[in-house]
Design a protein around this nucleic acid. Sequence first.
DNA 1: TGACGAAATTGGAACGTTCCAATTATGAAA
DNA 2: TTTCATAATTGGAACGTTCCAATTTCGTCA
Lengths: 346, 346
Amino acid sequence: MVKERVTVIDIARAAGVSKSTVSLVLQGSSLVNEATRAKVNAAIRDLGYVYNRGAANLRQAKSKIIGIVVNDLTNSFFAELAVGVDAVVQSAGFVQFLANTGEKIERQREVVASMREHGVSGLIVSPARGTEATDLAPLVESGIPVVLVVRDIAGAEVSSLTSDNHAGAMAAVRHLIERGHQRIAFLGGFPDTAVFEARMRGYRDALIEAGLPVSEALIIGSAPSRAGGVTAVEQAMMLADRPTAALCFNDAVAFGVCDGLRARRLEPGADFAVIGFDDVIEAKTAVPALTTVSVDPQGMGQRAAELLLKQIKAGKAEPEAIVGSVRLVVRQSCGAAVERKREVLA
Amino acid sequence: MVKERVTVIDIARAAGVSKSTVSLVLQGSSLVNEATRAKVNAAIRDLGYVYNRGAANLRQAKSKIIGIVVNDLTNSFFAELAVGVDAVVQSAGFVQFLANTGEKIERQREVVASMREHGVSGLIVSPARGTEATDLAPLVESGIPVVLVVRDIAGAEVSSLTSDNHAGAMAAVRHLIERGHQRIAFLGGFPDTAVFEARMRGYRDALIEAGLPVSEALIIGSAPSRAGGVTAVEQAMMLADRPTAALCFNDAVAFGVCDGLRARRLEPGADFAVIGFDDVIEAKTAVPALTTVSVDPQGMGQRAAELLLKQIKAGKAEPEAIVGSVRLVVRQSCGAAVERKREVLA
DNA sequence: TGACGAAATTGGAACGTTCCAATTATGAAA
DNA sequence: TTTCATAATTGGAACGTTCCAATTTCGTCA
C-alpha cells in the first residue's frame, strides 16, 4: 500500500541520465539541453516523484521555511496579521510554521526552539508579554533573522515593525475633543505593555494639549478582549463623574465596550462615543461602524514578511526599526453619523 | 558572526564519546550509562548545540510536522479551529504548517504540494469549495493520513470530522417554532456546499415536521460572512411577508444579520429572533448574546488533531467518518431574555 | 582465574539531495 | 581533418542524523 519513495535516482534511471542532470532540471538550470529536460520532466510526472526538501536543506543549509509566532490567534488582529504574512510568504515559495503562545512565555520558548530545530530561515514574532532581550539572544547569535511585530523589545538587536501608537491615540482623542467631549476615558489593555504605555501617553498628551485635566480614574485597564471591554466600561460607568466618550485599547475592547453600553441601554455612537484601535475587518461592518485608528493588521503582516524575506536574502542585515504610520478612520461609533433620540440617556 | 553549525560529531569530540552515543542520549535511550549521559548533556549545553530535525527525518522518514489548511483564517471559526489543532499538536511535540487558501482551489493545490515536499506526516484540511475526491487521491496513495474537517468530500477515502448540521439546524428551528414563530428564514451561506445543504435540510425538515409551509423565498444565500449577513437580511426584509425569525448559516452571518436589523431600527432578540451556528467565542459576549448551535470549533480542532495523530502513529488506519454532536445554546438573540419595548417595530 | 551474559559503546553505511571538478559531446574556425 | 571553445553531462563527496551489527567493558559466578 505504502509505495516506495521515488527519488532523483529513480528518475535518472527512467530518463536515462545521471542524477546530477535531474538535479539540474529540478532547479531550472539553463545548462541542460531542452530535449533532456523534457525527458526528465516526463519521468518525473510518470513516476509521481515528489521533491524532498528536507534532503535538499541538509545539503544547502537554506530552508524555505519561516516561523511566525503570535500571542492569540483567536484575536482577529493576529489572525489577520498571520494571513498577511502567509500571503507574501506563500508567493515567495516559502511555507510558514504558525504557533500560538497564548501569551505564555514558556510556550514561546518551546515553539521558538522547535522552529530552530526545524531549520526555519527566519522568524516573525509578536512577543509574549514579559519577553526580554535575552530571550532572543541565542536566536540572533545563530544568525537567524528575526522581525518583531506589534511589540518592540528594548535592547533586542533585531528588526521591529510597530505602529505609531502615540500619534494614533492623540489623533483619536483630538477628534473626540473637537466633537465637544470633555470627560474621555481610556479603556482596556494590560497596563504593563509597551503598546498600552504608548497609546495611553498619546491619550494623555492630547488631553494636556487641549488643557483638559487627566484623571487617573478614567484610565481603566483590562484584558485586551471583548470581555475585558465589557468590564472596563462597567467600571467606568460606576464613576460619579461619568465619561461621555472613550478611546479603547483595541477594537476587541471597543466592541466589548459597545456591548457593555447596550447592556445599560446606552446606544454606542449616539449616547456615548467609542473609538477603537487596529481597524480589524469587522470594524467596518459592525453596527454602529467602528471609528478606529487603522493599523491595517494584514498590511502589517505583509510588510513584516517582506522585511524578513529581504533580510533572509541579504544574509545578514542591519536591524531596522520601522514604525508604521497610522490613521484615524472616522465611522459611526464616535457619534459622527445619524442623530438619534436621546431620551434613553440615564 | 554567523557561527559554524555544531553537530553531534562536535559534541562527541567534546564529551569524549562516539557520535552514536550522542545520538543515543539525544533520543533518551536507556542503553547509555548515567555518567556518560551527563557528560554529553553538559557538552550539548556548553557548545549550544541545536538538533537538526531535517537530517534526522532524512534518515528515519518520519517528520514531526503536520499541515493544516483552512479556507479563511480571518473567520474566527477557522482561527479557533487552528488554535485547537495547535494545542494538541504542540504538546505531542509536533509543529504545524498553517496555510490559508482563501477558498481558492489552486492555492490549495499549491500548499498541499508544498507540504508534501516538506514531508509532513499528516494533514488536516478544511477543503476549499469545489474540492473533489480526485484532488486528494495522490495524497492518500502516498500513504499520508488526511483528516477532513468541517466539510466532507464524497468518495474521498480519508477520515473526516464534521458536525451534525442537520440535527443542529432542526433543533434551532424547533426552538423558534416553540416560541411561536411561523415565518422563519434561513439566511446566508453558499448554496453549493454540503454544509449549507445539511443545515438547510434540517431547517426544512423542522418546518415540515411542524406542519409549516416551506417558502423558497425565505431561503437566502450569501457569502458566509458578516457582510453577507447584512445583505441577506436586507433582502429578507424586503419581502412582502416578512419573516420574524431567522436561522443563520453561521455566527458570522448571524452577527451581520444583527447589524442589518439595527440598521433598520430593529433590535435583534426583541424585534426579531436570530439564531447562529458554530458558537464562536464572541457569541457569548456579544449583545445580545447570540443563541447558536454550538459546534465548538476549538474542540473540533483538538479532536481532528487527535484523530490525525492516532492515524500517524498507527501507520495506516482505516478512514473513519466522525460526525460530532452539536447542541443548541440558548442565549438572548432568539428572544429568550428580557422583555423589551416594542414601539420601534416598523 | 576463566568464562559468560549483560550492559555500554562504537564504526560505518544509509537517507535524498546539491555541488564541485572532471569528463564528454558538439560545432565552428582554421 | 585538426583544434578549441563552449555546451552538456557526470561521478563522487558531502550535509547531520539514525540504525545495524559488531565490539568492548563490566560484573558475577563457577
